[in-house]
Amino acid sequence: MTQTHTDYRLSQLDQLEAESIHIFREVAAEFEKPVLMFSGGKDSIVMMRLAEKAFYPAKIPFPVLQVDTGYDFPEVLATRDNWVNRLGVRLIVASVEEAIRDGIVIDDGKTSRNRLQIGTLLNAIEEGGFTAAFGGGRRDEEKARAKERVYSHRDEFGQWDPKMQRPELWSLYNGRLHEGEHMRIFPISNWTELDIWDYIGREGIEIPSIYFSHQRRVFERDGMLLSESEHNPLRSGETVEERTIRFRTVGDLTLTGCVESTASTIDEIIDEVAVARVTERGATRGDDRFSEAAMEDRKKEGYF
């Protein structure tokens, strides 16, 4: 039996964990059909771990949904499969390529895969009849997210209305919905990037290998380092070279930049994050850089 602290002190990481577990259980108890949006990135892996703990020794009582952009890193898909198999949860893959083929979203050649994910995701939520979708968004990521509720209401079109948000008090969450609406749930709202890393280190859980330093053939575009890939044809003037890098976020590999780094353990990553001078999105996400309100706009449309 584990002896707890005699002064009844709970570290901030334990408090965050307790709060997130509370949210998972609340949703499982009150919603008919929840689903967990799993990207294979570090935030959604922490969500999986928290869900695992919330229901242990029972299995996680809802399926996991991944939006496959077709441009995902193979290392990330491998980690996804390991998690899904270990926990015995059902995996639903919503493919952007299939959504394009079925005419659910339109690929005009200019729209990024991240943006095409929105329609694909909303379609998958509607088709599955899901009433609650867990997302790994954190409030420290971005200014619009800083205002978003843990239970974030979406209308029949999947839209978020920042001016009509329900007040959210104490730990009392309001999950009421009308026909066709759903709720996005953000159980790790109060975690920071550093908390995520500390937790991954403490729990010793598997994350995709691309988060750790490795050699990769990369090229520079718009001030970002992108991975060489068949999906990412070089433009004139761009040259590929091998560098020692790691990724701070994972996503569509045509848009997700990496940073030069020799951090090859969680502790080294934590040291790096602790002194990082640029947000993870600013550094490595092409899609968030276009305007100060880019994220707010995409969220209104139904983005994660």
Partner: peptide, 10 residues
């Protein structure tokens, strides 16, 4: 298994 539980533990 833990020896005691107190606020705000889940």
């Amino acid at each position: 298994e833990i020896a005691e539980a107190f606020p705000p533990m889940s």
